[in-house]
Amino acid sequence: MTTMDTRPTGPPDEPEEPTNRPPSMHRVRNWLKRPYAKGIVGLTILLGILLLPVAWLILIPMQATGAPASEIMEGIEQTVFVFTLVSVPIVAFVYAVLVYSLLKWRKYKGDQIPKDESPAIRTNTVGVVLWTAMSSVLAFFLVVWGLIELAQITSNSYGTISADQQPGDEQSVIVNVTGQQWVWTFEYPQHDGVTTEVLYLPKDRPVYFNVTSKDVIHNFWLVELGVKIDANPGAITQTGVTPNKLGSFNLRCAELCGMHHAYMETSVEVVEGETFESVMREMGGGRTA
């Protein structure tokens, strides 16, 4: 006895109004009646429901240390969430075929070459067209979403503003970040060039970073704020952020920079604007700009 799908035993169902329906619809109806079609569609739905929570679960570790603390990080988490949702149906379908195949189409064991052959399906126009169309639409959606989101975070991190055009107004804060093996130094040019080894940032005020390195490539990563840019020797890279959450966050080097790369981390203190100014004054930096 085989576990292969047997053909439906009954006669093909009688259409009520045969002339009004295109035969292709009957092909779909007929297809859905096949046991394996039902099985795979059902399994896809089941696995889809089982996989759906991943979209939320994946955010738990990302938020473990207090993220999101900026609009940039909110955008990143939203993108992860949406991409997971979009991927679930595809993964569910592919896994459904794998599972169904293992459950129902597994037939022969041992060393004997099977006598029976499977149906010779060399291609299936409907299947191929559907798959291509679906994957193209999904890829298109991901690209469009990604481009819009990229434009968004570029503007949120002031990525298009070059160093000489950064506003020196009351509201904004400029920080010159220098990486060297294996410490970070933060210089606040608007506050008499105060330098610190802990990054102090005011909440709800735009911060502009000019990032460079003294020796090798480092990567300036404000984990919970979603800011990341390489610190290159011989070049200055710009980025920025507007922190929107008070707290103590992590700054790690995310580019291998030699022996003590693992220890090249410090903390980011996001404080109220007034506290920030007083911290700066304590360190000897009145606001000059």
Partner: peptide
């Protein structure tokens, strides 16, 4: 995820 620049801004490295 990684091909997407915003997500890569968190995941890179």
């Amino acid at each position: 995820y990684l091909s997407d620049v915003p997500v890569d801004q968190y995941m890179h490295g």
